[in-house]
Amino acid sequence: MHIPDGFIPLWQCAIYYVILIVALYFSLQWARKNLDEKAVPLMAVLAAGIFAIMSMNMPIPFGTSGHMVGGALVAIVFCAPEAAVIIFTLVLLIQALFFGDGGITALGANVLNMGIVGGFVGLYTFKGLRKPIGKYPAIFIAAWLAIFLAAELAAVEMWIAGTFPLEAGLASMGIYHFFIGIIEGILTVVVIYALEKLRPDLLAWNKNKKLGEQKAEESEVTAK
């Protein structure tokens, strides 16, 4: 899903960068209000975690493999799509500059797909479905939809750039990420379930419940 340098014309890259700058402006406002001594390490670790998770290959039916993206995970943990925008901007920047994974000129497009669309779709799908179908099914669908739509948007961007035909791009990215999305959904559910059990204080929706400190002390991870 990482679009490399040279695949999108510069004028289109400029448009995606404008979108990124606007998103970063609002995310910065959010960061200044919300980053406290708990949120800073959480955000940095999540960023490092997203980086590492992207390097972990997962088995996918039909013999192929793929990796998690984590846009919905970040947005749901912080209950803020702005967190996904910040984390994905930083992660994709380092990936582009040090590992050639995704282009530096295509950074705006890549953050739009994985951070902005991934974060917004992930969080608001979760919020919308949480009451009707329950927390964990909602997380699964949110994570699946976030990665699926992000991949389809990447196909649309490549079509606008004249690099790949729309139908073939939507079909190939769609089929592949339909299955990766299932893995993403399962893993997002498991991670949030583990956080809820072991460190509920880290989840934004538990912020005002006063159970964080007690649970943090009981953490099995700390005990190990």
Binding site: E37, K38, P41, A48, V189, L195
Partner: peptide, 24 residues
């Protein structure tokens, strides 16, 4: 999948708790 999910969760939690100690 369950094992991989727990791996990701454990990796995240352990790194967070170490990171939190370092940051604090």
């Amino acid at each position: 999948m369950k094992q991989l999910g727990y791996t990701v969760a454990m990796m995240f939690l352990r790194a967070y708790e170490q990171g939190e100690t370092v940051y604090l």
